[in-house]
Design a protein around this nucleic acid. Structure first.
Length: 464
RNA sequence: GGCCCCAUAGUCUAGUGGCCUAGGACACCAGGUUCUCAUCCUGGAAACACGGGUUCGAACCCCGUUGGGGUCACCA
């Protein structure tokens, strides 16, 4: 049974990186009739943000990457929130202590920072000095009973080579000597990531662990933990990290990490998914635009590339534009209505405007600056209109039109321009500004048709 | 700094020893279509980081250098 998981921490806005991981997890699970689970890693109480978990699920739903099991979708391996699994971690940590693979540590934070500082000064690798390893178990238990504050650390063996089998990069070799006696249970009784991830991935029978490259350096600790417990390791896949334009890890300061930002900018979830799929993976036929179903059919974890790609908003925008162009008019209209819901736009005008704008906007947000003149009179003009005499003639000429269609409007306008010996370019530019206020607008005749005769006449009269 | 990962145009990538005169996409430049813009069409500029090997032959394999990134917490 293929089981994949994404394990976000509820510490803020839903992160685009979580979606990136989820896309692959979701695709691979679905391709193999497996399950995609979401586990909430909320073991850090200091960074916990109220409501963040809801945000994660809302984002997953928005992208159409909803999970099979999670805190909100019961499965047989729950609970799916780490804060609700505390006894499990404690039990396993104690098991490790009994087996001699972990020990109680009573060192104060002050002492720890002190030794870390000292080792740094001596240009050594800052590591815990294993001071508490020498405390006998009975002694430690006595101190526990006295209510002394403690953590549990795992014992790292000396002089061992630990190999992490990464499905993307092959074997990664580590020497155990560089590893620290990692804390696995904190003083507050919560597990650290290292213990929790191993226990949960095992208990939840995760077969393929896909996570960011930033975890490679702690992977040997996890491998060790699996060995200590006598469990079979999952298959590891460390995905490349999405980067800022300066190649550092994607950050709020330089890039856009929040899914909500992309929503606000009017990007479509299909386009973002398609774009994300192309980071580290490529379509066998070199296609750029493809559906999620097609991606699911073709995707394999092993085809992921190890190079960290830079997030290119320009290409995302192009792709978003492609999706907008290919979208049926009614659906695009719905998207625009929803996006601008606070404006209470006239649905029939929106619907009629779609053919005029769908090749001209790359994001939903761009609809407004381009099409607002269809809903409200221009308040400013890109250029002053001085040709009042000509405008009067336009007015009387348009007045005569009975069937107010783009074709007849166009014919009438062209005839007038010819008759008055005005260049088409100049003439239509003037009309464009009169009607829309802008030098750049959707096709003019069609816009006039949508606005209706009465409204058009009013806009012309206003400038005479 | 130690350890680890990575290395084809500005960006995303194809390429797994001869099919490469290195292909595609975005962006860019030029031209065409057009009443603006956009779409669309045509063309163009633009890359195998460097140095050693291995081999009849290397973008592809090995080593080194350089460069970039990640990580070194009782955060994930």
């Amino acid at each position: 049974m293929i089981r994949t998981r994404v394990a976000p921490s509820p510490t803020g806005f839903p992160h685009i990186g979580t979606i990136y991981q989820s896309l692959f997890d979701f695709a691979f699970a679905h391709k193999n009739n497996g399950k995609f689970v979401v586990r909430i890693e909320d073991t850090d109480r200091t960074r916990f943000v109220e409501g963040a978990e809801d945000g994660i699920f809302a984002a997953l739903d928005w992208f159409g990457l909803s999970e099979d099991e999670s805190p909100r979708k019961a499965g047989e391996y729950g609970p799916y929130r780490q804060s609700e699994r505390l006894p499990l971690y404690k039990k396993h940590a104690e098991e490790l202590v009994e087996k001699g693979h972990a020990y109680y540590c009573f060192c104060s934070k002050e002492r720890l920072t002190e030794i870390r500082q000292k080792m740094q000064d001596e240009k050594q690798i800052p590591k815990y000095d294993r001071y508490c390893r020498t405390i006998s178990l009975p002694d430690a238990q006595k101190r526990l009973e006295n209510g002394e504050s403690y953590v549990i650390r795992m014992k790292i063996p000396d002089g061992e080579t630990i190999i992490v089998h990464d499905g993307i990069r092959g074997e990664i070799v580590f020497e155990s000597d560089i590893l620290d006696d990692q804390v696995i249970i904190k003083a507050d009784g919560f597990p650290t990531y290292h213990l929790a991830v191993v226990v949960d991935d095992h208990e939840m029978q995760i077969s393929h662990v896909l996570r960011g490259e930033e975890w490679i350096s702690s992977a040997p600790k996890h491998v060790l933990l699996y060995r200590y417990f006598g469990w079979q390791e999952p298959l590891w896949f460390h995905t490349p990290l999405i980067r800022n334009p300066d190649k550092s890890k994607l950050s709020k300061r330089q890039g856009h990490t929040a899914v909500t930002w992309y929503q606000q900018e009017g990007y479509l979830p299909q386009a973002i998914k398609n774009y994300l799929a192309l980071m580290g993976w490529s379509h066998p036929e070199g296609k750029d635009i493809f559906s999620l179903d097609e991606f699911i059919r073709l995707f394999e974890f092993k085809d992921l590339k190890p190079l960290g790609p830079i997030f290119d908003l320009v290409k995302l925008s192009w792709m978003n534009g492609q999706y907008i162009m290919q979208m049926p008019d009614e659906i695009l209209a719905d998207h625009i209505m929803k996006y601008f819901s606070e404006k209470n736009l006239d649905a029939s005008i929106v619907r009629k405007s779609i053919p005029l704008i769908k090749e001209r906007i790359k994001t939903l947000k761009e609809y407004w600056p381009l099409a607002s003149f269809l809903f409200e009179k221009p308040t400013e003009y890109d250029q002053e209109i001085t040709e009042t005499q000509l405008l009067s003639k336009v007015a009387s000429s348009l007045e005569k039109i009975d069937s107010w269609t783009a074709t007849s409007i166009g014919e009438s306008l062209q005839a007038l321009a010819t008759q008055e010996h005005v260049q088409f370019g100049k003439f239509f530019m003037m009309m464009r500004i009169v009607i829309s206020g802008h030098k750049v607008s959707p096709p003019l005749n069609e816009s006039l048709e949508i606005l209706g005769k009465e409204e058009c006449m009013a806009r012309i009269q206003a400038l005479i």
